[in-house]
Amino acid sequence: MATLSQFVTLVSSDDFSFIVLRSAACLSGVIRRMLDPACIIFSHASLLYSVLTLTDGFVEARTNTCHFENISGMVLEKVCEYMYYNEKHRDGKDVPDMDIPPELCLELLMASDYLDSACPSLLHMALLTAA
């Protein structure tokens, strides 16, 4: 755990692997917490040191790999696409909408709910497309 690798692997239920930038993946609150024990939010900075030594975190943190048993490759691809889209346009203005295929939007909605994407716009966009 000395250094955190720059890329992480996301694996779908049908065994598609996506290697994404850690910073992009951490858009999802769930992925962030899975991978990053240091992200555990503490009210007291004095405790952080002991936290890091006490826990190695979960399996995911050790292997830098996340398996998602309930997300298909197709959806996960879209999710990854969104992650990079968000990474790219993080501070931009007048960002073009991301293209979301309508037939995927329900599944995307659920996935985004599941993954707790910090940025609400994936949910928002999925909803827009669904409507």
């Binding site: 769930v30 917490r33 899975m34 826990t55 979960f58 996340c66 398996h67 048993e69 309930n70």
Partner: peptide, 17 residues
């Protein structure tokens, strides 16, 4: 009991979910 490293976050999360 500080044995968390063998556990899969995703699995637990999915169960709770």
């Amino acid at each position: 009991t500080k044995n968390a490293s063998a556990l899969s976050f995703e699995e637990l999360y999915r169960n709770a979910y």
